[in-house]
Amino acid sequence: MKNTIKNLAIIAFVALVTVSFTTVDKEKKEVKTESSKVVWKGYKVTGSHEGTIAIKSGALVFEEETLKGGEFVIDMTTINSTDLQGEYKGKLDGHLKSDDFFGVEAHPTATLVFKDVQATGKNSYTVTGDLTIKGKTNPVTFSISIYGSKATATLKVDRSKYDVRYGSTSFFDGLKDKAIYDEFDLVADLEF
Results as ranks from 00 to 15, higher is better:
Ala12Glu: 07
Val14Gln: 10
Val14Cys: 11
Ala15Cys: 12
Ala15Phe: 11
Ala15Glu: 05
Val17Met: 12
Thr18Phe: 09
Thr18Tyr: 10
Thr18Leu: 10
Thr18Ala: 14
Thr18Pro: 00
Val19Trp: 04
Phe21Arg: 02
Phe21Cys: 04
Thr23Met: 15
Lys28Ile: 06
Glu30Asn: 06
Val31Phe: 00
Val31Met: 01
Val31Pro: 00
Glu34Tyr: 08
Ser36Ile: 05
Ser36Met: 09
Ser36Glu: 09
Val39Thr: 14
Val39Cys: 06
Lys41Gly: 06
Lys41Tyr: 07
Tyr43Asp: 13
Lys44Arg: 14
Gly47Cys: 06
Gly47Ala: 03
Gly47Ile: 03
Ser48Pro: 03
Ser48Leu: 09
His49Leu: 11
Glu50Gln: 13
Glu50Asp: 13
Gly51His: 01
Gly51Asp: 01
Ala54Thr: 08
Ala54Ile: 07
Ile55Phe: 05
Lys56Thr: 05
Ser57Asp: 12
Ser57Ala: 12
Ser57Lys: 13
Leu60Asp: 03
Val61Thr: 14
Phe62Tyr: 03
Phe62Asn: 01
Glu63Cys: 04
Glu63Thr: 12
Glu64Ala: 15
Glu65Pro: 07
Glu65Tyr: 07
Glu65Leu: 10
Leu67Ala: 07
Leu67Thr: 03
Leu67His: 02
Leu67Asp: 04
Lys68Trp: 05
Phe72Trp: 08
Val73Gln: 14
Val73Phe: 07
Thr78Ala: 03
Ser81Ala: 14
Ser81Gln: 10
Thr82Met: 05
Asp83Lys: 01
Leu84His: 02
Gln85Glu: 15
Gln85Asp: 13
Gly86Thr: 04
Gly86Pro: 02
Gly86Cys: 05
Glu87Pro: 08
Tyr88Glu: 15
Tyr88Arg: 15
Lys89Leu: 13
Lys89Arg: 13
Lys89Asn: 11
Gly90Pro: 03
Lys91Arg: 15
Lys91His: 13
Leu92Met: 03
Asp93Pro: 01
Gly94Gln: 04
His95Ser: 00
His95Ile: 00
His95Lys: 00
Lys97Thr: 00
Asp100Val: 00
Asp100Ile: 01
Val104Ser: 02
Glu105Ala: 11
His107Lys: 06
His107Arg: 05
Pro108Ser: 09
Thr109Gly: 02
Ala110Tyr: 03
Thr111Phe: 12
Thr111Val: 09
Leu112Ala: 05
Val113Met: 12
Val113Gln: 15
Phe114Tyr: 13
Lys115Arg: 14
Asp116Lys: 15
Val117His: 11
Val117Tyr: 09
Val117Gln: 06
Val117Pro: 05
Gly121Asp: 07
Gly121Ala: 07
Asn123Arg: 02
Ser124Trp: 06
Ser124Arg: 08
Tyr125His: 02
Thr126Val: 15
Val127Leu: 01
Val127Ala: 01
Val127Met: 01
Val127Ile: 09
Thr128Tyr: 09
Gly129Met: 12
Asp130Ile: 13
Leu131Val: 08
Thr132His: 10
Ile133Val: 12
Lys134Tyr: 04
Lys136Val: 14
Lys136Phe: 11
Lys136Asn: 14
Thr137Gly: 06
